[in-house]
Design a protein around this nucleic acid. Structure first.
Lengths: 220, 220
DNA sequence: CACGCTATTTTGAATAGTCAAAATAAATTG
DNA sequence: CAATTTATTTTGACTATTCAAAATAGCGTG
């Protein structure tokens, strides 16, 4: 069985590969894991020796098929636990990441299957992040973000790719959760700002970097 | 925060102190934790340095107030998780110990409080083991067991103090779970056997050692 | 193309937890 | 009560993971 540490390394490599694909540089990985770069190098070499990643020195890491399988398992546990915490225990959107971070390493396949059934086999977690299937398949559709979408068209939020509690609370407060319908009325690249409106709410300004974390699709 | 290892040492010291109180010998502790005796000695000395236990060399350990507080917290998490697994996820009586063993170290106070509320603040887990309160109080009533109780009187099972899956499945199959009413019709000390009957079930023979793990009170 | 900046790797050392096996203390027993 | 058995402790060594700091490789710029 992979240790908690190994699971975390693999999970973060998978997550980092989601946006910037190709090789993950050690700096990015060590930052994601809050360890010094040297530690990441050491660990990655061990993972490579176990056939879980490929390490190209001075360039970066990527998962092997075996490593990806493990990482998807961790991600599935993480996201199902989050869904449980929000939908069954009625916990706060923003608080559940931290909790799931612990529980994802402690939950067995048996318990996970029961949980999955209890939740009705959800396809995404409360942030809209896709939940890998038991077989390790994950929906990886490319969506527009509020930072890249067309203006003046109604859009449905499908996913909020951000895990910080502050941001999620902010999003929650302004109704920016999966399912919400919004329209971007204006985008100012120079200022790094955009304006959006939502039925029954006052217009809202958002930074481009924040907007880039909110994935949308055309609403109808 | 105490490590998983520390939590396990403290929990097992608490559990061992429940039956045989006084000092827990290192042999008993190391066996409970599946480590060699030398390891237990080393670890116990570290726990003593942290003020969590008192270690009297060549005699044994016991918890300090601080250690007991930690141990009761772990036990509370363990038993609430078990209750959740049985009552919400409908898992098997016998399977839940193993699962809870992992989850007890990964669940935060926040999640635990929600879980506790969801379950209706239960006083005992599915085996009848008392759940420590948030403040660290635990009901410690002394009950008779099937091995020590009066004959030919109706008795209500209140607790099954055994964690092995095999035993619990056996008990389950014969209806020996908390709440069940049984009568001991005969006890043969020499043979180490007793006979009991239960309404609507055929008479059952039980070893004295097994019977000693089933706590009862007079029914009505 | 040499210089310096930045990212990465190496090296040496620390911590937590473990085991195997030798040393010691306590208890039992003839 | 000396001898043996049994439980416990000590010692030395190993694994996994981490950090600090020194060494190195690649890069871009003048």
């Amino acid at each position: 069985m992979p240790s908690v540490t190994v699971e975390n390394y693999l999970k973060h490599i998978l997550l980092l590969a989601e946006d910037a694909d190709g090789l993950i540089p050690m700096g990015a990985l060590s930052a994601a894991l809050s360890v010094v770069p040297g530690t990441a190098t050491t660990m990655v070499k061990a993972l490579a020796a176990d056939g879980l990643v490929v390490h190209i020195p001075r360039q970066g890491v990527r998962l092997t098929a075996a490593g990806r399988r493990v990482a998807l398992g961790v991600l599935r546990r993480h996201r199902l636990v989050e869904t449980f915490l929000v939908h069954v225990l009625k916990m706060d959107w923003g608080a559940v990441n931290v909790e799931a971070e612990q529980l994802e390493h402690a939950i067995s396949d048996t318990v996970l299957d029961r949980l999955d059934a209890l939740l009705g086999h959800p396809a995404t977690d409360p942030h809209g992040d896709p939940i890998p299937s038991r077989e390790g398949k994950i929906r990886s559709q490319v969506y527009a973000t509020l930072a890249t979408c067309v203006l003046d068209r109604p859009l449905r939020v499908v996913r909020v790719t951000e895990q910080s509690a502050e941001f999620l609370q902010f999003a929650e407060r302004h109704g920016l959760r999966p399912g919400a319908v919004v329209t971007v009325t204006d985008r100012n690249l120079a200022a790094g700002l955009l304006s959006l409106r939502r039925r029954g709410a006052r217009p809202l300004a958002l930074s481009l970097s924040a907007a880039g974390r909110i994935l949308v699709e055309p609403a109808r």
